[in-house]
């Protein structure tokens, strides 16, 4: 019984620990520096990245371009999903983040339905919090997409997401865990297309590709620039009703640091294209090259660093 008693004591202690966290919304607050208001030039700049390879690559490109302008820029990749990293920007633990116009618009305005690239970009400029600002968007786009294997597409006659509606009840969808509750995720598929999958497998982005490849799931949520689509001959279902909207790549930065980074990052946005990103991702994901080296190559080739 001694073990039980000590386990109870431990539990009590851990609950006390939770209480000690106070009412802040970030239980890991001690790890992030307190929000500073100074933000003067010359302070280091941290470029964050989300938990997928394209975001890591873009973070390296941004950081490389900033360094070429003489700024002290480092990267902090793999922070997590949007729900996590936007908080890191708001509390100033990162200052620059590669973002996507449509997803950003929908994050701050859950009911937003615009799909035109210019409109979405204009809306994003209006609704991001005052502490943040977006710089120029690039033409490069990376959208969410629903993909199936070639075999499934042929057997069930699928070319668009709409085609899934009558058959989805027997199918399993794999996607990152947050897809289940995001407005553009499962709720959006149901509302816009009447598509309800029979079951859902929450996996990390690499796991999603593996599960589709191995036939453990029938459909998967994979980014449209992901090189695994071509590599495995997956079929991307057309988003006829524009559920996923426009997703141009755009630098999201702290408003108080915008002047320092504007020129360098706008120059990057001007050079990025969907094709160049897809080609770089092939190098990082399929050929397993270091994202930093691939980013540097892109910067040198475009006279950015």
């Amino acid at each position: 019984m001694k073990r039980t008693t000590s386990a109870l004591a431990l539990l009590a202690a851990s609950i006390l620990g939770l209480t000690a966290c106070g009412s802040g919304n970030d239980p890991l607050a001690s790890e992030t520096p307190a929000a500073t208001t100074s933000g003067g030039s010359g302070e280091p700049i941290v470029v964050g990245g989300a938990n997928f390879s394209e975001s890591t690559l873009l973070a390296e490109i941004y950081a490389g371009a900033l360094r070429a302008k003489g700024l002290d820029a480092t990267t902090k990749p793999n922070i997590g999903s949007r729900e996590i990293y936007l908080r890191a920007l708001e509390d100033n633990s990162v200052q620059v983040f590669p973002e996507y116009t449509g997803a950003l618009a929908l994050f701050y305005d859950k009911s937003y339905t615009g799909t035109d690239p210019e409109e979405v970009y204009a809306h994003v400029q209006d609704i991001v919090p005052d502490t943040l600002t977006v710089l120029d968007k690039s033409v490069a786009e990376d959208n969410d997409s629903i993909v199936v294997t070639k075999q499934t597409a042929t057997e069930k006659g699928l070319t668009t997401i709409e085609d899934l509606a009558p058959v989805a009840g027997d199918l399993t969808l794999a996607a990152p865990p947050e897809f289940k509750e995001r407005p553009q995720g499962i709720p959006g598929l149901e509302k816009t297309y009447g598509v309800t999958f029979g079951s859902f497998r929450p996996l990390n982005p690499q796991g999603v590709v593996q599960a589709l490849k191995n036939g453990q799931v029938d459909a998967a949520n994979i980014f449209s620039t992901d090189p695994s689509i071509a590599e495995n001959e997956f079929v991307q279902l057309e988003d006829t009703k524009k559920l996923f909207g426009s997703q141009n790549i755009v630098p999201l930065v702290r408003a108080d640091r915008a002047d320092e980074v504007r020129d360098a990052l706008n120059a990057v946005s001007a050079k990025l294209t969907t094709e160049s990103i897809a080609q770089m991702l092939k190098q990082t994901d399929i050929d397993k090259k270091d994202p930093k080296a691939v980013a540097q190559e892109f910067l040198s080739a475009n006279g950015l660093g």
Binding site: D26, I84, P177, E178, P202
Partner: peptide, 22 residues
């Protein structure tokens, strides 16, 4: 188990962290 898409109490940990729902 929740890391590779199964259920159990780990679902709350993984989903909670992915959604920022602490």
């Amino acid at each position: 188990a929740a890391v590779i898409s199964l259920g159990g109490l780990g679902r709350y940990l993984i989903d909670g962290i992915a959604l920022g729902d602490y």
